[in-house]
Simulated assay, not measured.
Amino acid sequence: MTIYSKFSDVELTSFLVKGDHMAYEEIYNRYNALLYIHAYKKLGNREQAQDIVQEVFITLWAKHKELLDIVNMGGFLYTCIYHKILDLITHQDINRKHISQLSTYLRSKNSNTDFLVREKQLTVIIEREIAALPSKMRQIFELSRFKHMSHKEIAEQLDVSEETVKKQVKNALKILRNKLGLFVYLVFLLRF
């Protein structure tokens, strides 16, 4: 029976290239704990360190026929661990960026949705108060604010004096300011 613990890394590598399971097991026993400690120091996470070490050994066996040029098995395994750690950190950074972008997007969507809901509610309130104005006053007010007609144009269209139009618009604004409150009234003025 061959005792693999007596072989050098170079000899074990040559056996491993030929598919020798016992050589693979000896390499695993020699380096598993050392690689784990190294990975843990870099990552500070036991599970991630264990996963990375296992991935390296799985890859080692999967590609054992390609290891002909390896003269320093320890250096090769540490390099593999280093690259796996870099891949993991890069992947985590990308995930954090995606999560941050998604969070920002969701916050902006919620803000936009809140704004749209509030704007719609405000519009309904304003429209309701305009509809409650006396008929002639409402007609003059709507021509002034929504059709953007001048007092003179409204007076000619409705066959009333410009002074009447001016007074009706002024009274409508006063009624709306009292019913809607100052803030809503100012928003209304800015929009229309």
Rank of each mutant, 00 (worst) to 15 (best):
M1E: 09
I3L: 10
S5C: 12
K6L: 09
F7D: 08
S8E: 06
S8Q: 05
V10T: 12
F15G: 05
K18H: 11
G19L: 03
D20P: 06
M22K: 14
M22C: 00
A23M: 01
A23F: 02
A23C: 02
E25G: 09
N29T: 01
N29E: 07
A33Q: 13
L35E: 03
I37F: 06
H38M: 06
A39K: 01
Y40A: 02
Y40S: 03
K41E: 15
K42N: 15
L43F: 10
L43K: 05
R46W: 00
R46F: 07
Q48R: 09
Q48L: 11
A49L: 05
Q50K: 15
I52H: 03
V53R: 03
E55I: 06
V56Y: 07
I58M: 13
L60M: 04
L60K: 01
L60F: 02
W61K: 04
K63Q: 12
H64G: 07
K65M: 09
K65T: 15
E66G: 09
L67G: 01
V71F: 03
N72V: 06
M73S: 02
M73V: 15
G74T: 05
F76H: 13
L77I: 07
T79L: 07
T79R: 13
C80L: 07
Y82N: 15
H83S: 14
H83R: 14
L88G: 00
T90D: 13
D93V: 09
N95G: 03
N95Q: 15
N95R: 14
N95I: 12
R96C: 04
K97L: 12
Q101G: 02
Y105C: 03
R107S: 05
S108K: 10
N110R: 05
N112W: 07
T113E: 08
T113D: 02
D114Y: 11
D114L: 14
F115L: 14
F115I: 10
F115Q: 13
L116V: 14
V117M: 08
R118N: 15
E119M: 05
I125M: 04
I126D: 02
I126G: 06
R128C: 05
R128H: 15
A131E: 15
K136A: 06
K136P: 00
K136D: 14
Q139E: 15
F141N: 06
E142T: 11
L143Q: 15
L143R: 12
S144Y: 15
R145A: 14
F146N: 09
K147P: 02
K147N: 09
H148F: 12
S150V: 04
H151Q: 06
A155K: 04
L158N: 05
V160R: 06
S161Y: 00
E162R: 05
E163D: 11
T164A: 09
V165R: 01
V165A: 03
K166H: 09
K166N: 08
K167A: 10
Q168Y: 09
Q168G: 00
V169H: 06
A172Q: 03
A172M: 02
K174E: 12
K179F: 00
F183M: 00
F183V: 08
V187T: 07
V187R: 05
F188H: 05
L190T: 08
F192E: 12
F192K: 12
